[in-house]
């Protein structure tokens, strides 16, 4: 049990990443693929956050006397995740607006039926 207790964040992050990958690779509906992309991104954010996480740690601000640096959470991964979330939102917005356009042109979101461009 202690293994699960120690590594629960990494296990969660990895399973989210794998679920996202599975959805992207297998699903036929474009909206589902985009949701898969979003789940994959969420998994990565969780992975990055858990890299710097300390149980019952505090924010890295020396606001009160007696706070020690060892108990502080690493702020860099959190900054990275903030940036990555913004990028993820941009990609999601673009993907969804392209999906709307695609539906207007083809009348379907089934990726197996949309294949005018091919090798």
């Amino acid at each position: 049990m202690s293994f699960l207790h120690d590594y629960i964040y990494y296990i969660g992050a990895l399973s989210l990443i794998l679920i996202g990958l599975y959805i992207i690779l297998v699903k036929k509906n474009l909206i589902k693929v985009i949701i898969g992309l979003s789940i994959l991104d969420t998994g990565i954010y969780l992975l990055l956050i858990s890299l710097g996480y300390i149980k019952e740690g505090t924010a890295p601000i020396f606001s009160k006397p007696g706070l020690k640096a060892e108990n502080m959470v690493d702020p860099v991964p959190q900054a990275l995740v903030l940036t990555a979330i913004v990028i993820g939102v941009a990609i999601m917005a673009l993907a969804l607006s392209l999906a709307v356009k695609l539906y207007k042109h083809y009348g379907t979101l089934n990726l197996r039926k949309i294949k005018e461009q091919r090798w």
Binding site: L30, I91, L102, H105
Partner: peptide
């Protein structure tokens, strides 16, 4: 925003 462009863009994006 034509058929081919949108389809290729979404493939490229994914």
């Amino acid at each position: 925003g034509d058929r081919a462009g949108v389809e290729s863009a979404i493939k490229y994006l994914i």
